[in-house]
Design a protein around this nucleic acid. Structure first.
Length: 872
RNA sequence: GGGCGCUUAGCUCAGUUGGUUAGAGCGCAGCCUUCACACGGCUGAGGUCGGAGGUUCGAGUCCUCUAGCGCCCA
């Protein structure tokens, strides 16, 4: 034996003199990889498989303690099911698709994508990002994305391996890789062929900086200052005017109607009449709609195309005309006043006014039009400042505009009832998380826009024919052949065409857009499970068992995955969803990188050890936000150390120098004290099993840990002298058999939480991996499963009373400021007869542990323990 | 404004269908160099369960109202 024997993989290799935790992560993760401990058994039938739809982390994001937290939860569950004999399908995905990667590449290399540039095969990014970004072609840009994400993925994998995730590393995928692209495109083509996806030019939420459409799920409201501007609209064919209030006066040229509530007496006479817009002289109707709020502003509002989402509703439901003035760059578009659609009473005046606005941003245009309206006298009074919620893209910096553009939509609104039913069918952990899904589905207002006008994403496998006039015919998309997937319509050619015909009359053009990131990640079960590409694998893992994820993406990732599975397979994608909470900083605020209080995980693992960090994570109950607490990691480390030392003691008693094979049978357990301990452990096994089955790793840990500390503090002390015995008498045999059984069970109970230290100890006396060992049962503790958790009260009392009296003896010694080894001349215990009987059967253990010379007992109503210490 | 969750010792949290003096860990204080463990052991002091009302023989545990915190959505 040497001092440096941690890890290394040789099983049954004996007990080190001075066990430690250093180096366990590196040694055992290498051994697991070499042994294939976590390899998925592809021969297992579906019923024997436990399949996990692992969340693919965004690799372009920073590593966060929150990752460690939630991924540890999933890993404990994976390990439990593996020990229960399931073939665990535990893949790892990398989400390297989409905007976050694009932005990181732009900043990291100092480049920007210009899709009009040709590919430069010799391009090398600057060594230092220049101040002025270098324009590169789309293929060059994408290559840089791949280069950087590959690096990021290695960093993540290293962290996961160090943390001890029992992932099968041969089962990895990336959301931008060929397989994911193929699955995404195939999924799209299937939707298209079934008519479940459609293309429409429609008002679209638009981020003018990212120049992309944004879906409902990506919106957030932010409170922003604004001002009500009171404008007067002259009536047509009647005296007087109508006063409205608006926060968007720059959209006056886009005004298509005024609207008030149908029951609003003030405006009822106006419904059906017309007014003209100030400055532009456009005749617009006055209409009624329930969404008009009589309390807001003057009670009557102008409808513009489009100022906000309510405008869209009014425009659609009231069948209004369209006058678009805001372009995709957020600036006002040129308008030909007097032309069709832009009819006006005063074309010259409108043109003059608009000439001051065209080309300006909405903010600049607002400033200018206020001046114009002031000069013309149409603006009444001073603008009235307010604060109101404005819609933003969650990653954006300027308010969203609403523009008309051509987008692909997945039909979700007609699915609402089926989606609600699936939400009820899914088992949620914790159950109340189901509300979030239901509320989202019930609140859906539009189909799912899956088009994004970006570059690093999965392209739509679609081209459009170009007519003789050179115009693309978007109504007749040419779909790719499934066998050819993945395709990039910007470089690949549709069936029946030649590359030379690209963009020419009679030729074709590719769809320039890429899919929303959720359009790809909604297919993670299909991507990881090998849908169509590997039908044998897919049949063994789908529908999967578990989707673990965070609660803030229930409305996006979880929802979208349910949608795709429902449309493609007519089933749930998994049976269970385990929703993890947040990591909060010690001030109970959500940790976020914007606050700069992010704790990077790897140094924590290096400081405290992976088991200790996992211990902290596993203390966070499912769905519950948990404070970041290094103190808990210290506790976890102490637990791991205790496991080493207690194991060393127990195994040292078992072997008598014999070796790994010397494991006495549980039938040798005869002493009541030993049976009481095993009885309690059987209850713990039962509770931990039930808890893990319900995905409650935290409860499993809590019960196991509580038992383990009491086991060390009381039972080990009480049994020590027998365990040190020669081994000839039955008492010693009983103690050793009980210790062996308890240790074996405890290591396996702790293995999902503390995989490294349990594997280390297991290797001292057992062959193979503890993580491949069977999950413990009450049966192997000599306790028939059907008697759990009903303990035999008389037996259990032995341990209870013995531990209690031992505590009294300790207290007396502490009070007397004496060592625990101090001799007790006489110990007098007064208690109920049954309890004294129980104590009697552990008398020799108690006296040995407490160094008690003489035990005197009296039956009495007032329990007491009098300790007379021997002279020093 | 709507929905969900939380509020128990200084801190972080348990408390499963309502039932004897409300539990744990950390921290704190004191004691013990004990032959598995000083990366230790032992012992102890700390709450009446956010507030108000109600149901009940009995409530932290059920109901109503209320305050505060957090998240999601409008």
């Amino acid at each position: 034996m040497s001092e440096q024997t941690n890890g290394g993989g040789a099983a049954g290799r004996g007990i080190p003199d001075k066990p430690g935790l250093e180096g366990l992560e590196a040694a055992w993760s290498a051994w697991w990889e070499a042994e294939g401990t976590y390899a998925f058994d592809r021969g297992a039938p579906r019923g024997q498989v436990f399949a996990i739809d692992t969340p693919p982390p965004t690799v372009s994001g920073s590593l966060h303690i929150g990752h460690v937290f939630s991924y540890t939860h999933t890993d404990t569950v994976a390990r439990f099911h593996r020990m229960r004999g399931k073939a665990v399908f535990y893949p790892m995905g990398w989400d390297d698709n989409g905007l976050p990667t694009e932005r990181r590449v732009q900043n990291h290399f100092g480049v920007r994508c210009d899709p009009h540039l040709p590919y430069d095969p010799d391009f090398v990014p600057p060594s230092e990002p220049p101040k002025q970004p270098v324009a590169v072609s789309r293929p060059n840009f994408v290559a840089l994305c791949h280069q950087l994400t590959a690096q990021d993925e290695q960093v993540f994998e290293r962290l996961w391996r160090t943390l001890g995730l029992s992932v099968d590393w041969s089962q990895t995928y990336a959301t931008i890789a060929e397989r994911a692209q193929r699955v995404s495109q195939r999924g799209f083509l299937r939707l298209a062929r079934r008519g479940q996806v459609y293309q429409r030019t429609a008002p679209t939420l638009w981020d003018v900086d990212f120049r992309t459409a944004v879906s409902q799920a990506e919106l957030e409201d932010r409170e922003r200052p604004g001002a009500y501007h009171r404008l007067r609209f002259p009536r047509v064919g009647a005296p007087g005017g109508v006063e409205i209030e608006t926060t968007r006066p720059e959209l006056l040229p886009a005004c298509v109607a005024l609207v008030a509530h149908p029951d609003d007496e003030r405006f009822r006479p106006l419904f059906g009449t017309e007014v003209t817009t100030p400055l532009f002289g456009v005749r617009v109707p006055v209409v009624a709609h329930e969404l008009a709020d009589p309390e807001k502003g003057s009670g009557i509002a102008m409808i513009c195309t489009f100022g906000d989402t309510t405008d869209v509703v009014w425009w659609r439901e009231l069948g209004l005309t369209t006058r678009t003035v805001v372009g995709r760059d957020g600036r006002l578009l040129p308008v030909e006043w007097g032309a069709a659609g832009w009819e006006t009473e005063t074309p010259d005046r409108a043109a003059t006014a608009y000439a001051d606005l065209v080309g300006r941003t909405v903010v600049q245009a607002q400033r200018r039009i206020v001046e114009l309206l002031t000069d013309s006298g149409d603006l009444l009074g001073e603008p009235r400042p307010i604060t109101h919620p404005v819609k933003f893209y969650e990653k954006g910096e300027r308010p969203l505009e609403i523009v008309s553009s051509r987008q692909w939509f997945v039909e979700t609104l007609p699915l609402r009832d089926r989606l609600l039913a699936r939400g009820q069918e899914l088992r949620w952990h914790p159950p109340y998380m189901a509300h979030r899904y239901r509320a989202w589905v019930e609140g859906l207002t539009s189909d799912w826009n899956i088009s994004r006008q970006r570059f690093f994403g999965v392209p739509f496998p679609v081209w459009y024919p170009v007519d003789g006039a050179g115009e693309a015919d978007y109504g007749a998309p040419i779909l790719a052949d499934e066998a050819a997937l993945p395709v990039d319509p910007s470089t690949d050619v549709p069936p029946g065409y030649a590359e030379a015909q690209r963009g020419t009359p009679g030729g074709f053009v590719g769809d320039p857009d890429v899919m929303d990131t959720w359009a790809t990640s909604s297919l993670t079960p299909q991507i990881a499970g090998g849908w169509e590409d590997d039908p044998d694998l897919f049949s063994r893992v789908f529908p999967m068992d578990l989707r673990p994820q965070a609660h803030e993406i229930i409305r996006t990732w979880l929802f979208a995955t349910v949608v795709r599975s429902e449309l493609e397979h007519g089933s749930l994608p998994w049976t269970d969803a385990a929703i993890s909470g947040w990591v909060l900083d010690p001030d109970r605020k959500k940790m976020s990188k914007s606050k700069g209080d992010v704790v990077t995980p790897l140094p924590l693992i290096e400081t405290h050890g992976a088991d200790a960090v996992r211990y902290w994570a596993a203390g966070g109950r499912p769905g519950t936000d948990t404070a970041f607490d290094e103190g808990q990691m210290k506790v976890g480390r102490r637990l791991a150390t205790k496991v080493l030392n207690a194991s060393r003691f127990i195994l040292g008693r078992l072997t008598d120098g014999g070796g790994a094979g010397a494991v006495p049978p549980v039938e040798a357990v005869t002493a009541p004290l030993d049976r009481a301990m095993l009885g309690r452990l059987a209850v713990v096994v039962d509770e931990a099993t039930t808890a893990f089955e319900a995905y409650d790793y935290a409860r499993a840990l809590e019960r196991t840990e509580a038992f383990f500390w009491a086991f060390c503090d009381d039972y080990l002390e009480l049994v020590k002298s027998r365990a040190y015995g020669e081994g000839a008498d039955a008492g010693t045999a009983s103690a050793r058999a009980a210790l062996a059984a308890a240790l074996s069970v405890l290591l396996r109970l702790l293995a999902p939480i503390l995989p490294f230290v349990t594997e280390e100890v297991w290797s001292w006396w057992r062959d193979g991996s503890v993580h491949a060992a069977a999950w413990p049962t009450p049966d192997e503790l000599g306790v028939p499963p059907d008697t759990v958790p009903a303990l035999d009260p008389a037996t259990d009392l032995v341990l209870e009373v013995a531990a209690e009296v031992l505590g009294r003896v300790r207290r007396a010694k502490t009070t007397a400021r004496r060592s625990m080894r101090a001799e007790v001349a006489v110990l007098t215990v007064v208690d109920a007869a049954a309890r004294l009987d129980a104590l009697a059967s552990a008398e020799s253990d108690l006296c040995a542990a407490g160094h008690v010379h003489r035990l005197v007992t009296h039956v009495g109503d007032q329990p007491s323990a009098e300790v007379v210490l021997a002279a020093e």
